[in-house]
Design a protein around this nucleic acid. Structure first.
Lengths: 154, 154
DNA sequence: TATTGTTATACTCTATAACTATA
DNA sequence: TATAGTTATAGAGTATAACAATA
């Protein structure tokens, strides 16, 4: 469940509105819970990406995390200050910086990922297991994830 | 479809993240399209609510539109300035103001609602008719809309 | 004392353009 | 010339607290 309040009926005829309403509630709950780990949602996202691709350049981390490179700058500043991630010089191109997950960062991420999974269960617990899978499938399809990549691109 | 970009794979394991990603894209498209009618998303929401409950007080309009009463103030200022809605004195309680949809407001709303329906179709066209209904149903359930009202309240 | 609308403030998220240093 | 990272700024969205008029 997403809290006590309900979305305004007059607007639920637009599925897009319903989608936004649910997402905003979910994101707010997520943000509150993440704050307990001292993380913003975006920081959690970047740490999660770094777990898979530690050592990538800032540009590719930004792309993998779905945020703007300029937004990543501030996020990394904050993570670095707390010793959770670090920037290093790129060995071949002095314009580039590689980004690395530190050990404290990995430790915090493990616990935060557990929290995230827990919250995910809570938020969607009003749906049956099968409905949750349906929703996941529909959203993946909607987002274009399960479609072949655009062939016209170069 | 929600545009060319895809959500970051590393984070799609969290359904809540997928939900937020889809919602944000949908909302951005919606905002761009509504701007053609000269409306912000919130303004469109308020006009839609007013179509059903013209003459209600600001508090009840705010609740029906799912926004904060303080947010409604600025929204109404903007709508009133363009002659799309108007505030009137409440006949019985001088603290209250009733809110009314004007005729130009109703006209604009009709055209904007058409636009909204069109966009809704576009955004969800990657889903079959049945999948769209499934999604609508799942989101309604998730948001608590199809559950009985809380019995513990007074 | 409590409520309605108002005002002011602050914080998040996102987008964009310009700057620097390097290539 | 173009690219990577940085900085600054602006806009929309949201939340909150305090205030004046009125009940």
């Amino acid at each position: 469940m997403l809290g006590e309040t309900r979305p305004p009926e007059a607007l639920t005829r637009y599925t897009g509105f319903l989608l936004s309403w649910c997402a905003e509630r979910s994101r707010t709950l997520f943000a509150h819970r993440m704050a307990e780990s001292g993380l913003q949602v975006r920081e959690f996202g970047v740490l999660t990406v770094l777990a898979d691709s530690s050592g990538a350049t800032q540009q590719s981390v930004a792309e993998a995390a779905g945020i703007d490179p300029s937004t990543l700058v501030a996020t990394l500043d904050a993570l670095e200050k707390r010793g959770l991630a670090e920037r290093r010089a790129h060995p071949e191109d002095r314009r580039k910086r590689t980004v690395h997950l530190t050990e404290p960062g990995a430790t915090l991420l493990t616990s935060a990922a557990n929290t995230a999974q827990e919250l995910n269960r809570e938020v969607f617990k009003s749906l049956s297991r099968q409905e949750q899978q349906q929703l996941q499938r529909l959203l993946r399809k909607l987002s274009g994830l399960d479609q072949p990549a655009d062939q016209t691109q170069h």
